[in-house]
Design a protein around this nucleic acid. Structure first.
Lengths: 353, 353
DNA sequence: CGACGTGCTGCAATCGCATTCATCGAACGA
DNA sequence: TCGTTCGATGAATGCGATTGCAGCACGTCG
């Protein structure tokens, strides 16, 4: 029924050991014999049993991705990149949707971490404490864990260059003559919100006479943007930078519904460049984040990081430092971003509004 | 380091056999002892090794989902539903993105099928022949395979009630006074295009004096809709029904760009109700497909179908018929749909255009 | 000509768990 | 009281692949 290694070995007239080596450690077998075994294996349609292999090698050939919401285009794009690179490297990908619940995220990492060779975690809102618990788990179990778009001591990560993205956006608006610029932030607990907020401050310091107006925190969804839109209108800014595109689209929609013209009266800039950004009119000026590349980079870094030394080994290697959770040099990849100017930004209105 | 069943057994003072039974066949062990073992297992943080269990039971605890494009909101929504239900049933989910390539889809099903307990396949464009090859593979290997939104003899499937969706849309337009209605179809090879096209014909037969105008086949993306938009304008229809929302959004955008007002001059109806449908203005009237429910239903049906009898067994059971690939009664679930009326449809223009 | 690599190959021991089969004691009926 | 049955338990086996170790043949060098 199903072809096993013994079948191949028998058919090729060698021992199972040799057959195994011919297929997965070719240098150890004499060339002629090696070819022969491989040929037989091909003919018989032999497929190594992954469970058996995993049992003895400890490697599963699977990676795992945990995201808050698969339907969110941001994470969908990351997932696509992760999936592509994983497959290219010969891994299958387990995907888990945590339904926006940080506790569930942690649980999923715990459960799935046991059956994979590495975990990519997108968790903008998990608490630092929880994250630290996961990090310790990782040290215990030797399953590498990588963070997307978030930094944490002791965990490798791939992050977006938010400071630069925000800087580009602010400079763009400044160049168009905007001097009072609103910032519609993301959720208060979100790591990337904190990042971008800091980026905004930093960017505005470098420019003359720019005043940034903090419009507050909003849920990073369309409805959040609708609420934000009214604040934009009331604040008297001539431009607004939103935490992400969905928020920006909500703002756009609300402004238009209230008869405020975009970009003539107010310019709007988003972040992420999700597909819908080009489907609306005016098309959204936004910061495009190469999410596919981000996902691929995540897998590369994860695999390159390799099996994590167990807690005992790492304690030996690093003295007590590592065991006590002190920051060490964990690899981080920075993903560059680019502003794409579309129709939602324009020259600032000259008359005082 | 890692707790094994032997450790639990030793700590509980029983044999590994009893420990195993206490945890996975509780009725076979005396209540007191059972509790005790379970308690110990909990204290030690015992986790059964999935590879070992798989090796002996043949069950992996994983399901697999193959989709053409994870970033497509349609498939993202299905994936979310599949994922949720799979987890609820104790399965992990392997997700594979086939990059819109039917050949890759088949290959993925082949590879991943070997390491899962069931496969959910979304493949609108795979050829019938290829599909049939997969079906035969399934019989060989005993891995259940389920089709989403497509029918094929011998394979269970979950399909959308396209005929009804189209009927609702056409009746809606008819009620608004439209008499010449355009249909912008999907890709020529697509199964659901054929379905909807048939639905259109059928629906229009039931109504007096409705003329359906076939505008042709279009790639089911925004750009396809832009092209379709011009055909809509040239065809003199007062309403158009698009194969899916992306297409409809493209049409909407093109019509507006050409100064044709929606819905005053032309009404537009989409299909699928993707998130972006509510983000544009006018918001898109469309047929909402409960994709999450579809995904969940798919998993339920897949699991319920259970392990497929091997080819030998089924041949015995069904005589030569099954082996010769004759149609048998494979279970099919029909997912109902609903028209949601938004702002892109209105009363037909009374003046001849 | 003998000792010692060197290069391949096979034996056998895992890996962690489920499951079959035999055993043993208790409970029950006669 | 004894035989029988049944329920609970443990010892042993095997799932399929990998791998340390030993053995074998051959070549080389002293």
């Amino acid at each position: 029924m199903v072809v096993t290694l013994r079948d191949v070995a028998r058919a090729a007239g060698v021992s199972p050991a040799t057959a195994s080596r011919a297929l997965s450690a070719p240098d150890l077998v004499a060339p002629a014999r090696r070819e022969h075994v491989q040929q037989i294996a091909r003919e018989l349609g032999y497929r190594p049993n992954r469970a058996a292999r995993e049992l003895i090698t400890g490697r599963t050939g699977n990676l795992c991705l945990v995201v808050p919401d698969l339907e969110n285009p941001f994470f969908a794009a990351v997932a696509k990149g992760v999936q592509a690179r994983a497959r290219a490297l010969g891994f299958a990908l387990l995907v888990a949707d945590a339904e926006e619940d940080p506790r569930l995220e942690a649980e999923l990492v715990g459960h799935l971490g046991a059956q994979v060779d590495g975990v990519v975690l997108c968790s903008p809102r998990m608490s630092e404490a929880e994250l630290d618990r996961l990090r310790r788990d990782v040290l215990d179990r030797g399953v590498p864990l990588l963070l997307v778009n978030r930094l944490h001591d002791g965990l490798p990560s791939v992050v977006i260059d938010n400071a630069d993205g925000v800087r580009q956006a602010v400079r763009h608006l400044h160049a168009l003559g905007h001097r009072r610029i609103g910032f519609a932030g993301g959720p208060a607990g979100s790591w990337s919100d904190a990042q971008r907020r800091r980026g905004v401050e930093h960017a505005s310091h470098g420019l003359r006479s720019v005043e940034m107006v903090d419009l507050g925190h909003f849920p990073p969804v369309f409805a959040g943007g609708v609420a934000a839109g009214d604040l934009v209108a009331a604040s008297g800014v001539t431009a607004v930078l939103a935490h992400n595109d969905l928020l920006a689209l909500g703002i756009l929609s609300r402004l238009r519904a209230r008869g405020i013209r975009v970009p003539e009266e107010v310019s709007v800039v988003g972040y992420d460049d999700i597909p819908a950004a080009t489907l609306v009119s005016p098309a959204l000026t936004t910061v495009t984040v190469p999410l596919g590349r981000l996902g691929r980079a995540a897998v590369d870094l994860l695999v390159e990081t390799g099996p994590v030394p167990t807690v005992a080994e790492s304690a030996l290697a690093a003295g007590l430092g590592a065991a006590r959770g002190e920051p060490d040099d964990t690899p981080t990849v920075l993903i560059g971003v680019e502003l794409v100017v579309r129709a939602s930004t324009g020259v600032a209105a000259t008359d005082a509004r």
